[in-house]
Design a protein around this nucleic acid. Structure first.
Lengths: 236, 236
DNA sequence: CGTCAAGGAGATATCGACATTATTGACCGA
DNA sequence: TCGGTCAATAATGTCGATATCTCCTTGACG
């Protein structure tokens, strides 16, 4: 028989990754109730696996746990997006400078490869939404930029904050597409990295992140105050 | 990580906090196997609660999960402590500057209160180890310093890294006590905060953190390379 | 004597049942 | 008609049993 173990290391781990992808990709409304019963059928695993996945996502900040009241997707608010952006930019800067400092040829190749992959990936699907493939390629490019950073803790912090940012971006991107040439932006950023121009890379990346946040805020997708608890969220 | 809930009807949450305290307080050797069976008897909860707690701690980086092989406490190594310190100091700086900028009188009072509490708490127990009360008071003081920071994400990052640092500190502190006047150090830092001298506070705090790390490294508690998997860890 | 395979003990991963709590909705009284 | 109490319902929290896997031991064979 083949090797199912290497492909499926653990069922609960798989459930965690799939649920995480659902959250990051904007498939779950902010504040939506995450009923364990529904998740059992949706993810096709048992209760323990669902609870473990929710526990991990709680620690990541993507899910909030209310004792005796279950779990719900974390809220997306204007102030939180501003705070997130303010925290993210300096941490991203630290990763960038270290990556440019320590990057080798293989790192440059990874950037070029990821950039090419992104430009050749379909951006919008037939439904007008950003495709999951593009979102994944976009993440990979940004991860490639900082992959040469020699400090795992900084990378971990960056990853956590980037995941939160993705949640905002992909949730809003379901409703409107920005009028920017994102391919060109990414190419300029990549050039700065390849040129080992840390200051330029930091500046472009900061603008890239901040402009995205500003665009989302301008559209007013995210309510400012405490939203009424949306009763149920169900999708197919 | 989260503030203590007034009501703790959640048994699994309680198990998580207790297990986390065990790890942070240095009661568990780095790399030690965390047998679920033992934890069930040790924490007096069922299996699901243990697994949920371990899942959260895995997301925090205090525990590493090896699929089909269980969980073990994260490793403590020289290089990791250096990287951790390098990542921690600039993030702590950001929190400090924002706290000093936004802090009000109540914040100053919290610092004074926490400082007084620390100086009046027994440092070493009869067994020569740092008391858990002192460790808790120490955490509270450092948390009070930055409590006025208006950015929850930066505070969250700081909390995560500080927890890792605690793990190094308290594990090593079980073996040797530093020849420093820690009370005086903390008082000087507190003065800088009360004086709203951000540069001084940052400088003192950076020295405080870095000196602690250097001391631990000098004693050579933590092995440099991959340690042999210690077979079992059991304590009472 | 070394190597490898088969077996067994122990630990982990998975699963569904049961108890507890929160929420909904109806009924009753003012 | 509105408000409040209480029962019915549904979801969550808790728990132990079972299946699967890993690792160590043992024994036979080369």
């Amino acid at each position: 028989m083949s090797e199912p173990n290497s492909a499926l290391p653990s069922l609960t781990q798989d459930a965690y990754q799939r649920l995480r992808a659902l959250l990051l990709f904007g498939r779950v409304a902010p504040g939506a109730k995450l009923k364990i019963t529904d998740l059992i059928t949706s993810l096709d695993v048992n209760m323990s696996a669902v609870r473990e996945a929710l526990a991990r996502l709680t620690a990541e900040g993507l899910v909030i746990a209310e004792p005796q009241k279950g779990f719900r997707a974390s809220l997306l608010t204007e102030v939180d997006l501003r705070q997130l952006t303010d925290a993210r930019i300096p941490i991203e800067e630290m990763c960038i400078r270290r990556a440019i400092d320590a990057g080798d040829l293989a790192w440059e190749q990874a950037i070029v490869s990821a950039l090419h992959g992104l430009t050749r990936t379909q951006h919008y699907g037939e439904d007008g939404r950003v495709t999951s493939e593009w979102a994944e390629a976009h993440d990979q490019l940004h991860r490639a930029f900082v992959s040469a950073c020699d400090n795992p803790w900084l990378l971990r912090m960056r990853e956590t904050l980037a995941a939160q940012g993705d949640r905002y971006r992909w949730f809003a991107a379901a409703a409107s597409r920005p009028d920017r040439d994102l391919d060109d932006e990414h190419r300029c950023i990549a050039d700065a990295f390849i040129d080992r121009d840390a200051d330029r890379a930091v500046r472009l990346m900061s603008e890239h992140i901040r402009f995205t946040a500003e665009t989302l805020l301008k559209h007013g997708f995210f309510k400012t105050s405490t939203r009424t608890a949306s009763p149920i969220k169900r999708q197919r």
